[in-house]
Computed example of a mutant assay.
Amino acid sequence: MLRVKGLTLVEVLVTIAVLGIALSIAALNLRPFYDPLSDGLTRTEGLLKQVRAKAMATTSAYKLSLSGNEWTAARAGTCRSTSFSADPSLNLKLPEEVTASISPSGASLCFTSRGLLVILGGSGSGEPVITLRDNKGRTKSLKVLLGGGVLRQ
């Protein structure tokens, strides 16, 4: 009698189940490698680039405001407009362990339809710097260039 070698369906399913359990345990053990400060910096940098791209794509002005630990976006025809409409699709909540501040203090960032940066409010001049600080006292910064670019410092 000729016997074909191979795996049965039950053996394959058991193997997949064991691998799934092993991978989930490994993923839980990798959790300590999470760095909220780097995550917050990367998310903030991505948000700035995304808001600038949306302003250029829609030929609208987009304003970003920092309130506590959350970035909120709003749009209008121009950066000098008195009325902005909220765009919740571009809001960002930073990780709980991270606090953010912007210099000049109290400023909002507005990207024009050409992707240029206009600083609204706040005291001071120059290119704004966004500083993120974690609960361990470490800091990382982003400098937003007037041309719309973003640099890690």
Rank of each mutant, 00 (worst) to 15 (best):
L2R: 14
E11N: 09
V12N: 07
T15F: 11
I16M: 15
I16F: 14
A17Q: 07
A22I: 15
L23P: 02
R31Q: 14
P32S: 10
P32V: 09
F33L: 15
D35G: 08
S38H: 13
L41C: 05
T44S: 15
E45V: 05
L47Q: 04
L47R: 02
A53E: 11
A57Y: 08
L64H: 02
L66T: 01
L66G: 00
G68F: 07
W71I: 03
W71F: 15
A73V: 10
T78P: 00
R80A: 14
T82N: 11
A86P: 08
S89C: 04
N91W: 06
L92K: 01
L94D: 01
V98T: 03
T99L: 10
S101L: 11
S101T: 15
P104T: 05
P104V: 04
S105H: 09
G106P: 07
C110L: 03
F111W: 04
T112P: 01
S113P: 06
G115A: 06
I119D: 00
I119F: 03
L120V: 14
G121S: 15
G122V: 07
I130Q: 03
T131W: 08
K136W: 12
G137Q: 04
S141V: 04
S141Q: 14
S141P: 04
L142I: 09
K143W: 06
V144P: 05
L145C: 08
G147K: 12
G149I: 06
R152Q: 14
Q153L: 14
